[in-house]
């Protein structure tokens, strides 16, 4: 967003200037993308640790996870999966339309992506508020008094549930902030067939958020 490498030619067409420490635009594009991929690797390892913990505890204490998963509505989880998959498509399409220089469709697809993110968080909100209301919470906060509460260490399941979906939702919120930034720049006409690096980089992050949910959905909602 720095104005130093932004200029408009007399025709009003946006032109991105390569930062001075890069040999050429291609090098700048590749360096940006490489940095994002490295970041994604650290993300995979962070979520991976949680997944490994989940699978091991699931193997050791199947009855806790079997009982806990009954409190989740797979229909809400499946809806959220579809919503995130569609948002991943529109994110990818915004890059496609930048590549073919259709600036209007770049914006349309970014707006649809943002709308999908709102729907995802809305459904999450419904799920969480329901569980918080019932007292299905991690550790000491747990105060549910149905017959399932007799299962020893049941609150551990909700520790995993809120920990994993919470960390994921915080990524969705970060992604939304980044998409808003992309929309602002797209309105200024910054993206087109000659320059779409920010779309590519935010897109990669957004797809990772989708990837994590692809694993979270069956692990939490379906394996009981």
């Amino acid at each position: 967003m720095s104005t130093a490498n932004v200029s408009h030619s007399s025709s009003g067409e946006y032109h991105h200037h390569t930062a001075h420490h890069f040999e050429n635009a291609e090098a700048e594009y590749n360096a940006s993308k490489f940095g994002v991929w490295l970041f994604l690797c650290t993300e995979i390892l962070m979520f991976g640790g949680l997944f490994v913990g989940y699978i091991i505890y699931h193997q050791r204490y199947p009855e806790i996870f079997h009982t806990g998963a009954k409190f989740l509505d797979w229909r809400l989880g499946a809806t959220n999966t579809v919503v995130l998959l569609i948002s991943s498509l529109t994110m990818a399409l915004s890059i496609y339309y930048a590549q073919v220089n259709n600036k209007k469709m770049v914006l349309v697809n970014l707006y649809v992506t943002l709308a999908c993110a709102f729907v995802f968080l809305g459904i999450k909100w419904i799920e969480w508020s329901h569980k918080i209301h019932e007292g299905l919470l991690p550790g000491r906060l747990f105060h549910y008094d149905g017959p399932e509460a007799a299962v020893k260490d049941l609150p551990m399941y909700f520790g995993f549930y809120f920990g994993m979906t919470g960390l994921h939702a915080s990524h969705v919120i970060c992604g939304m902030a980044l998409i808003v930034w992309l929309i602002v720049r797209a309105h200024k006409g910054h993206f087109g067939k000659n320059y779409w690096t920010p779309l590519e980089c935010v897109g990669l992050f957004w797809h990772l958020v989708d990837l994590i949910w692809i694993y979270l959905f069956p692990l939490l909602y379906l394996i009981g």
Partner: peptide, 30 residues
Amino acid sequence: VLAIFMHLKYDDRLYLVLILTSVFFLIVMY
């Protein structure tokens, strides 16, 4: 998602190697 949406299929092999490395170490941890 990785191959098409994230363009790995048509991209430099470098990115594929990067991502497989982190998956490999995940398997080691598990």
